[in-house]
Design a protein around this nucleic acid. Structure first.
Lengths: 107, 107
DNA sequence: TCGATAGTTCGACATATATCGAATATATAG
DNA sequence: CTATATATTCGATATATGTCGAACTATCGA
């Protein structure tokens, strides 16, 4: 019945909002499909997680891309760290788990 | 790697967008906690699924509530049917499953 | 030091969204 | 038929969002 007593509705809504725009969702899909932490990504092969790579397929301006990445970051969906000239991005698995648990609780 | 080939990104984004507003998320939470189809809801007890009930805790105008319900409906998250003066709402389990599967695929 | 690469910040602008109240529709009870 | 309960539609309005280009910051290489 109510597994929902302890949900932080606003936090959850922020997560959904971050994924609610097709371009941002594509960015996130790109990220989870190449470098979920813990995934066997064959190390030297496909670790293309920098911001430019995430937006390569999107045909939007760099400033717009930067804006979307920031939204995802502020929603807690991805973490960032500088690597030389680039910014490495990776999925924040805790937030992802929170969202997943919401749907598991509805079943 | 990519379990994401066949995802309809726009459809998925519409689902997330519908859940991205705190009031709409609360409405949906109310709905899933009282009448997910298949749930043992003790029939005559708590079947309070009409629109007025869904918004009872929200302190928004009826027109605003109607608007949010419509958004959830158009995103495929809930189905509606008239019952006398009232509109019965119930969760659309197919759409819900689509969203859940997205998160399951990211693990 | 200078130029190139990668990303960010800012201001402007168009569009979308949330909200309300008033008017309207639909159904039931007297 | 009328009054009431429930919900929707419409128009107005304030705020939020997505996008761009220009200017800026940070890092690396020659």
């Amino acid at each position: 019945m109510s597994n929902y007593r302890n949900i932080d509705v606003d936090q959850l809504a922020r997560g959904f909002k971050a994924l609610s725009h097709p371009n941002r969702l594509k960015i996130f899909l790109q990220l989870v499909s190449c470098c979920v932490p813990g995934t066997n990504c064959a190390a030297d092969e496909v670790q293309e997680c920098c911001i430019g790579d995430l937006g390569a397929a999107l045909d939007i301006a760099p400033s717009t891309l930067s804006h979307h990445i920031k939204e995802l970051h502020q929603a807690g969906l991805l973490q960032m760290a500088r690597r030389g000239q680039r910014m490495d991005c990776r999925v924040d698995t805790d937030t992802l788990a929170t969202l997943r648990e919401f749907f598991e609780a509805t079943s």
